[in-house]
Design a protein around this nucleic acid. Sequence first.
DNA 1: TAGGGTACTAACAAAAAAGTAAGTAATGGC
DNA 2: GCCATTACTTACTTTTTTGTTAGTACCCTA
Lengths: 132, 132
Amino acid sequence: MAKRKESSTNSENRNYITTCDLTYAVCLVGGRWKLLILCKLEKGKLRFGELRNQICNITERMLTLQLRELERDGMVKRTVYAEVPPRVEYELTEISLKLVPIWGLISNWGAEHRETMLQKNTAEAENLIEQE
Amino acid sequence: MAKRKESSTNSENRNYITTCDLTYAVCLVGGRWKLLILCKLEKGKLRFGELRNQICNITERMLTLQLRELERDGMVKRTVYAEVPPRVEYELTEISLKLVPIWGLISNWGAEHRETMLQKNTAEAENLIEQE
DNA sequence: TAGGGTACTAACAAAAAAGTAAGTAATGGC
DNA sequence: GCCATTACTTACTTTTTTGTTAGTACCCTA
């Protein structure tokens, strides 16, 4: 159905690393826009155009690609309404909903990490000035 | 110190997406081999060569690159011993240690997701056979 | 009949990530 | 002097991901 290529070391390695459940899980949301999309869907269903407007720098092509992969991987559900103009809604699935609380934990950790790095860099900058 | 390029849409978007704490956090471990490396270090310090041997498909170049980024981002600590031949040890930092329990949760979720997808694909395959 | 809205798709180009192969420095032991 | 060991570099190629631009189908409304 989809194009495949399994011979390069590159793709062999992709397979190898995803034998680790943790790496596998992180790869599922590894596309540039995926987590942003999923976060928007946390609050409920959204249409294609709503997602596009809420993620201001994404192109339609990238949004489509990321949504297709998320759908293929069971992370979002896509519902097409037979209307004109077309209406398509996206929502989280049973399994992706289970990640929501974990995203909260990671997000908090991320904020803390950002804080830490900021302080570290400030301290280093001050040391540099002192050395002059 | 390091080469930079800030003008492409590509890198502008990188900056944009990492304003989200969740995306930021996931990007920190987004390199192909990073989580594998971090997992190996969960059990304690390891030397460069030990990491290379435990992650059988990684090249020295990739291991070096990933470790450098992890170090830059405060995720691993690097200790060089002034010996010949050289000895370098890597270990988790205070902040990356805080992620360990979260990795456990994600890992469990990953295993569950894998299970789910397996069943889904089996079911689809059976439907295809019936249709023939 | 021309234009509008929605959710895409296709062909192509640019950028980034990953992989290959062949080095390097330092020094202890033979 | 020569080789082995360790933890890397460097120069280059390949593969993958991301971005740009210009379409498409559908039917409704003016």
